[in-house]
Nucleic acid binder design. Structure first.
Lengths: 259, 259
DNA sequence: TTGCTCCTCACGTCACGTGAGGTGGC
DNA sequence: TTGCTCCTCACGTCACGTGAGGTGGC
């Protein structure tokens, strides 16, 4: 065995940008416990714990409650699985960056509008508030879907080897959707149908045997009208693009939906 | 008077991307109360409240506690003051975007390192955790300075016409610092001394009569060694660049510091 | 010895969320 | 009338933070 660096709570807290209290708390609830203790009873953290802590923080930033993370996060100690996690984290951060950039664009539009008209466009102001809100807690899957559905998605995510993969796949798919929709691609075109196939497979793999979830996930939450009015058109993209694309896809492939 | 659109809690919540419960809660604590009620006692929000809500959310995103916002946030209802707020919010979001981009760069470096060596660099992993942490709660001024100093800065911020201005100025200055430091600019050069003058004026205007704060703010927190190890070199930038620049500035201008 | 970090335990806090039981408005 | 939104009140919860009183290690 090679020498392993060991950190005390204070050192680890500093290096990870959190408080000692937080780490002590995480130990208490069993989320991330030290690998061992010193003679005097001080917490000592090693490689294994640092990796787990990184993963736990990432999942927390996606909006998962600590209890769920504690119960379901499996150790991912190989270099390969860590790479996978880092890749997903990068995707997530890029998505978050794009969200914030949208918010900035919205602000610029709004200031231009105020300069032009001298009047305050309230709906723009509310749209900014909403956009910033979304940018901050980037677990927007968790915001857009209703609780039961999210539970199922999360459950499914944690059943996989790497929960980050599943969350990242949603992320990537939604980014792709926005790209297609903004680019004005026809949902019935080859490109649109390729997307429909991906979406269908994703939903089918998550819903598994459960037709109820299948139904609600296909329309991306079913109660789409209750979604918050977001910056620009994710709602519209889902309704107009996914709706039409999936409709054709199902027709073409003779898929039978449970009514 | 022109017709004003009035929103119920549900409508407003949807448009701002928050829950009805949150708005009811904000009313209860007196943070944002409806402008009036309907006959049946339902909350009705107008223009004034929407503007206040937007400002309150922005300050909250900077890390201010709700109670403080409630007590100190003055209404900013003119188009001009709203423009100012939006400008600061844009700067803040851009800062946040840059932070996240740094985090992404760090992740890419780390994956490259893993691919090269096959080994997991723990310190990089902790640096990522720390960077993401900072990107999420962008009130990094509040993280970097100690509590008493922050209280003073915040107090000063709220004494101004527009608290966003002060926070935004810090933001801009720190961004400028990072730029100079990364660009390898000499702190004793003309450019460096220009920056030193700005920094000095900022600190002097905040510290006012208070020499204690002046001292600690000049070294940017005084207990700089206790700062978290951030992604790359904010700490170093402060110590090496600001330290040297201010030293020369004070010498050149014959400024007397209280010991 | 001094200063700093760390320990546990009990309690506090911040920003909401959750029903329960009822009313309002198209 | 039905379905939906909204009301208040009391209580719950999540993720920590705050002392108090003490020990450990360079």
């Amino acid at each position: 065995m090679r020498e392993e660096p060991l950190y005390t709570v204070g050192e680890l807290a500093k290096k990870c940008g959190v408080s000692v209290r937080t780490l002590q708390f995480y130990d208490r609830i069993g989320l991330v416990s030290p690998g061992g203790r010193s003679e005097g009873g001080r917490r000592l953290y090693g490689r294994r714990e640092i990796i787990r802590l990184h993963q736990a923080f990432f999942l927390k930033s996606l909006g998962f409650p600590l209890e769920e993370i504690r119960d379901k996060l499996m150790p991912a100690e190989t270099a390969a699985s860590l790479m996978e996690t880092l890749k997903r984290q990068e995707e997530t951060l890029n998505g978050q960056i794009r969200y914030l950039q949208d918010a900035v664009a919205l602000i610029r539009q709004t200031t231009a509008e105020i300069e032009r008209s001298g009047d305050i466009p309230l709906s723009s102001l509310m749209a900014i508030t909403s956009a910033v809100q979304l940018g901050h807690s980037y677990a927007f899957v968790l915001k857009y879907f209703k609780k039961d559905d999210v539970e199922k998605m999360v459950g499914h995510a944690f059943e996989q080897e790497n929960p980050f993969t599943v969350m990242g796949d949603w992320q990537a798919m939604i980014d792709r959707l926005m790209e297609l929709h903004r680019g004005g691609v026809d949902p019935e075109s080859a490109e649109g149908q390729e997307f429909a196939a991906q979406w269908w497979n994703m939903v089918a793999s998550i819903s598994g045997e459960n037709p109820d979830f299948l139904k609600s996930a296909l329309s991306a939450g079913e109660d789409i009208e209750n979604w918050p009015d977001d910056a620009d058109g994710f709602k519209v993209a889902i309704r107009d693009f996914v709706g039409k694309a999936i409709e054709k896809y199902i027709r073409d492939h003779g898929i039978q939906l449970p009514e």
